[in-house]
Design a protein around this nucleic acid. Sequence first.
DNA 1: AACTGGTTCAACCGCACTCGT
DNA 2: TACGAGTGCGGTTGAACCAGT
Length: 328
Amino acid sequence: MGRQPCCDKVGLKKGPWTAEEDKKLINFILTNGQCCWRAVPKLAGLLRCGKSCRLRWTNYLRPDLKRGLLSEYEEKMVIDLHAQLGNRWSKIASNLPGRTDNEIKNHWNTHIKKKLKKMGIDPVTHKSLSNSTEQTQAQQEQQQPPLQKQQEQQPFIVEIDPKIEHKNDQNKEPETSFESSTIAEAKKEDQIMTPLFDSMELMNLFCTDEVPIVEPNDILVPCAPSTSSASPSSSSSTSSTNSSSNNFLQDLLLSDFEWSDTYNDNNIDNSNNNNSNMALWDDDFIRSWNLLMNDNNDDGDGKQVFDAPLNQYPRMIMDSESWANGLF
DNA sequence: AACTGGTTCAACCGCACTCGT
DNA sequence: TACGAGTGCGGTTGAACCAGT
């Protein structure tokens, strides 16, 4: 017996989301939190399937998402995690706060794969490409040692968040021999997390899979003064945990802001709790939400840079006021 | 300016998994 | 245990964008 489609596809809209749809979805989730995705489109007044709504939210609208290309550091993490986990993008993403599996998958396919090939590394096996002669291999290794060698030389070891792994491994995970041996051994020794990098440790404490259900009272915060919105200089840089973003809440006069209990529970043992929170609410976050909250009624002052039919809102520009006034 | 080929990435599709009954 | 609904995941697609000619 075949599975029923996730939704009745008749009359449902497909393709790129419009700003209007985004607003509806955000508005609904902010008001009601994330509930049954199947019901979301109906309740939110969207002609979309629930799956599409979930995807749109998790991959694009979620407030904690970073924007922009992956940093070198993140790229390294992806490569190393991929060496351990293979194409399990969601697991890889769970070790990269603010990044989605889709984003990482795309970045892998478009950037990292090529880079590795250029470096003479097979992106699948993470070993030197076999078709090269030993000599050229040696040359390549001199120029750019394969991953394992790199790790020996400058031990960049991406460790998998044990919380995530243990959680996931409650259910059997078909693993390749390569990765299973690595991970299983690490588990045995119960030392998956080796704090090679403090920032790494910090980052691992936040898992995008553990993003709290966003409750309205978590997000409906006083709107940031427009001056704090997205200075152009803070472009879509990938490392959002800079000093300025660390003061983000203070900048917003939100010192009493707190995450929901769920979130706090997840981070209760995090001595750097503030920092991890900050990572969620950085400049990019404000900017992206500003982008989303643009009102179509914007009075043609040049902020709206997309043509109505295209509705390629990801690239539109606007200010904080529109976020405050446009949606609620 | 127009065309073309390559690149990027948001979104879709279908299968797998989890959970409740 | 079996079944169905809901959700998650990874592969794929296609429209938009970009660079070269």
